[in-house]
Computed example of a mutant assay.
Amino acid sequence: MNKSLIACNILAEVNQDELKLAIVGKWKGHVNGPFEITLEDLNQMKKNFDSGNVDLVIDLDHATIFNKTGEAYGWIKELEVRGDELWANKVEWLEHGKELIKSKKYKYISPVLLPNTIDQATGNNIGWTLHSAALTNRPFLEELGEVVANNKNQNEGESGMTPEEKEKMEGLESKVTTLETELNKEKEKNIETQVDAAIAANKVNPEQKDSLIALGKTNPDSLKDFLDKAKAIVVAPGNDMYLNNNQNNQDEKIDVLKLGGIN
């Protein structure tokens, strides 16, 4: 096997800013020959990364390998060994990197693993290192899932949820919508009750009902303040200013001038 480098195209799953990069196993069909990755190798990759002082680049189609440099589409900032897997614990995706993944123009990640790395300072062989990673469309390892560039504005199809989780989420959203609808109906009913009570108390005219209900829907506090301050409307007497109704007999009219002793 060519020990210079191993580029493993992986359908790697991103969880928020995390990225699975390698797993323990054996592979026989690589272009550079069969190779094996052990848990010790994963730990060595993390150790060598931690001892370095730079983030690792995520480029496009291995430009860093083939062209000696390449534009960054993301940066690997921290590695972690989880069981028999190597994860980029922190990935900073750049916007053009996210866009390539969300548009499905690029779906896979290809880490470049160096089995025999020579330390620049000491000249010693420090073993396995993670050199870089690339967005690519030519997968080699298919065990690790598809790349999903997650962010706060992504749609549900890119959320990485299982069908069961998505179904549960949709059920909860439906319940929330139903509760919101019922709450709005209850609020509208309460507003109408307040207005009807004000009409019954002669604080507002019945003609004002629709406009006051509209006010309550847009600004309940303003409606409450208005109704609290409203006072009963005083009805002006009829045209017969000389007549009044006897409290004991509503049908008997009394001349108010005669009550004053004037003939």
Rank of each mutant, 00 (worst) to 15 (best):
K3H: 14
K3V: 01
L5R: 06
I6C: 03
D17C: 02
K20G: 01
H30T: 03
V31M: 04
G33K: 02
L39I: 02
L39N: 10
Q44N: 05
M45D: 06
L56G: 08
I58V: 01
H62Y: 05
H62I: 00
A63S: 07
T64S: 10
T64I: 03
F66V: 06
T69P: 05
G70D: 09
E71I: 09
A72M: 02
A72N: 09
I76S: 05
I76L: 12
V81L: 03
R82G: 12
W87Y: 06
W87D: 03
N89F: 15
E95W: 05
K98I: 04
L100N: 06
S103Q: 15
K107R: 14
Y108H: 12
I109G: 04
I109D: 02
S110G: 10
S110P: 08
P115V: 06
P115W: 07
T117M: 15
N125H: 04
W128L: 07
W128T: 00
W128F: 08
T129I: 10
T129V: 10
A134R: 03
L135G: 02
N137V: 01
P139V: 04
E142D: 08
E143V: 02
E143P: 05
E143C: 09
E143H: 10
L144T: 03
L144G: 02
G145V: 00
V148F: 11
V148C: 13
K152T: 12
N153E: 10
Q154A: 04
E156D: 14
G160R: 03
M161Y: 15
P163H: 04
M169L: 15
M169D: 06
K175F: 08
T177A: 15
L179V: 04
L179K: 09
L183S: 11
K187Q: 01
N190Y: 13
E192Q: 10
E192V: 08
V195E: 07
D196G: 07
D196W: 07
A198C: 13
A200V: 11
A201D: 15
N202P: 11
K203L: 14
K203C: 14
E207W: 13
E207Q: 14
E207M: 14
Q208H: 09
Q208N: 14
D210Q: 13
S211A: 14
I213D: 06
L215W: 13
G216L: 06
K217V: 08
T218C: 11
N219I: 00
P220L: 02
D221I: 02
K224E: 11
K224W: 14
F226E: 08
D228W: 10
K231Y: 09
A232S: 09
V235L: 09
N239V: 07
M241K: 14
M241I: 07
N246K: 03
Q247K: 13
K253T: 12
I254C: 11
L259K: 11
N263L: 12
